[in-house]
Amino acid sequence: MSVRLTVRPLRLAPAYAELAGGVDGGVALFIGRVRPDGGRSGPVTHLFYEAHRAPALAALADLERSARARFGAHRVVLWHRLGRLGVGTASVIVGCAAPHRADAFAGCRYLIERLKAEVPIWKTEERRRRARPRRGRPGPRSGR
């Protein structure tokens, strides 16, 4: 079992090593990254991730057991990063190793969808404010 909540950067190579330790024919990996969503109040520059640690780790462990039972997954990675992350930074790595690719893909998809819905982790957006014209400020003077 490999579940983790960490403030340290997530790296792909150790996640793959965790999954590839057996003889499974399929290893599926998903990496979620901070994206610069737009909006009226400006684009996202950072996301702040927080968790209620003990229930979150318990929920991740439940997911891992569930993926084993449903998809015959032999190895699972559920790593989530916490803290303030900039655009493009990996926030989550989910992986599933199973004897065949169909179960590896399905297990990986199942894990990330369930993680988002059922694990007590939250993100708060930080946006760069768009410049707005100030009211009441005179424009350039026209020549007289």
């Binding site: 991730y49 209620h52 989530h80 993680l115 988002k116 059922e118 694990v119 982790i121 993100k123």
Partner: peptide, 8 residues
């Protein structure tokens, strides 16, 4: 108190 989750 846990508001709706938004990890990932």
């Amino acid at each position: 108190i846990h508001p709706p989750y938004s990890g990932g």
